[in-house]
Design a binder for these strands. Structure first.
Length: 415
RNA sequence: GGAGAGGUGGCCGAGUGGUUGAAGGCGCACGACUCGAAAUCGUGUGUAGGGUCAAACCUAUCGAGGGUUCGAAUCCCUCCCUCUCCGCCA
């Protein structure tokens, strides 16, 4: 959530930015009324408490007189009654606070998906390739039919060399990211509701949500390692000297993907479960913008090294999630579709997630403030296989192993 | 799953009804000493909200929520978590 003080000082801005993100239910004015109401009542309660504290201090160490005891009892009742009223107001206040998305940076394009801005193009736009699914099936590298039998539609098995190739991509990307100073973490594949919502994921019962939930437990299956990585330092105060904290987490990602149909969901492009290496950074507030560029650069380095044409877009406001202040996507050039398709993504969430989960930094001068968090895809595996299958397929049905991956494929140059 | 122990400040750790927001230590900040540093000594140092030009000051906070009491870190109940032993198990 946002800092209430910031909202008070920038009410119009917060309202506008929320609307630009497409959040129609945000009512900043209403929130501020609740805020005022809440503070007024809180002050009243605090006065009553002060009176109670004075009273008990007077009778400390001695038996209270009947009058004092009676006065104390009355105060207790009045405080309890007022607290009940306050609680109801605070619930409404908190609910409103949760509806307000992070404020976007001013260099974020305004508009919907089609308004995202291309900021860089690398490589050309070759055409003509066999669809990745057909190609993989013909080699018996993927089995969606058995995936459906065992779990359901959009579940799959990877077989043989393609499964090994997934592992090679993971290993290559991991080594590269580690060389940039990141620490490898394996993570819980489920998180509790506080961490899930704090990181910006939909709560149980949200029909729009993309999450799977565990029955009878306060657990959400993660849709990305971003959730447990965000929660890693929850409720901690980190030392300025220790920042930035850079982590790379590996996990399966579980997504319901309800209601997503059509061509772009064919095969491995959009599935219920895939593996992903995710970069995550905890930074000083003034350092997050630079870190965002750094994470993007690492993503570029990976795909340049593998050898795939792509472009980078800055995501427009209406296509941003609540926590993000700015997001870049790398989209690879699809030889099959003749269009760019989403491959990786990196977001600067500024202090939004960190405030939710109480992640702070103690500055050198002793001040404590909420820090900034960022996340970025190192590699998303199922989708990476789509890319390699499209770009490295050969006429004889074999697949050339991208050079940088060969050390992780037993030195083979072709599979 | 069963039995027991426990959850206190950035960290460790005292504290079983009222001078305890919390001893002591570590860490950190500042100062002294030093050419400089280490060591040593001194002073300060929880977090959040309100208040103030700034202070003073007020409120909350000892895992979470409820209860008892004039008054709760301290007593009672529920839940969560951690540790030890047993059971089970990759």
């Amino acid at each position: 959530m946002l800092d209430i003080q910031f909202i008070r000082d920038n009410a119009a801005l917060v309202q506008t930015k929320a609307e630009q993100k497409g959040y129609k239910n945000v009512r900043v004015a209403e929130l501020l009324e609740l805020d005022t109401e809440r503070r007024t009542r809180l002050t009243q309660i605090e006065e009553l408490r002060a009176r109670r504290n004075t009273l008990t201090a007077e009778m400390k160490g001695q038996k209270p007189t009947p009058e004092q005891a009676e006065q104390g009892r009355q105060l207790k009742e009045e405080i309890a009654a007022r607290e009940t009223e306050l609680k109801a107001i605070e619930e409404k206040y908190t609910a409103q606070m949760m509806t307000i998305p992070n404020v976007t940076f001013d260099d974020v394009p305004i508009g919907g998906e089609e308004d995202s801005v291309e900021i860089k193009v690398v490589g050309d736009k070759p055409a003509g390739a066999i669809d990745h699914l057909d190609y993989a099936v013909q080699r018996d590298w993927v089995d969606f039919e058995r995936g459906a039998k065992v779990a359901g539609t959009k579940f799959y098995y990877l077989k043989g060399d393609l499964a090994l190739l997934e592992n090679a991509i993971t290993q290559y990307a991991l080594q590269l990211v580690l060389s940039k100073g990141f620490t490898y973490l394996t993570v819980p594949h489920m998180v509790n509701s506080r961490i899930a919502t704090g990181a910006g994921f939909a709560p149980r019962g949200d029909k729009e949500g993309n999450e799977y939930f565990v029955e009878d437990e306060d657990l959400t299956l993660i849709g990305t390692a971003e959730a447990p990585l965000t929660g890693f330092h929850a409720d901690e105060i980190l030392d300025e000297a220790d920042l930035p904290k850079l982590y790379v987490g590996y996990s399966p990602c579980y997504r319901r993907e309800a209601g997503t149909y059509g061509k772009h969901t064919r095969g491995l492009f959009r599935v219920h479960q895939f593996n992903k290496l995710e970069m995550y950074a905890f930074t000083l507030p003034e350092a997050s913008r630079e870190m965002h560029e750094r994470i993007l650069a690492i993503e570029e380095e990976i795909w340049q090294a593998i050898g795939v044409p792509y472009h980078i877009i800055t995501i427009a406001s209406g296509d941003l999630g609540a926590p993000a202040a700015k997001k870049y996507d790398i989209e690879y050039w699809s030889k099959v579709d003749g269009a760019y398709r989403e491959l990786t993504s990196c977001s600067n969430c500024t202090d939004f997630q960190a405030r939710n989960l109480n992640i702070r930094v103690r500055r050198k001068d002793g001040r404590i403030e909420v820090l900034h968090t960022l996340n970025g895809t190192a590699v998303s595996l199922a989708r990476s296989l789509v890319v390699v299958l499209e770009h490295f397929q050969n006429e004889d049905g074999t697949l050339t192993v991208p050079e940088v991956l060969r050390p992780y494929m037993g030195g083979r140059d072709k599979i």
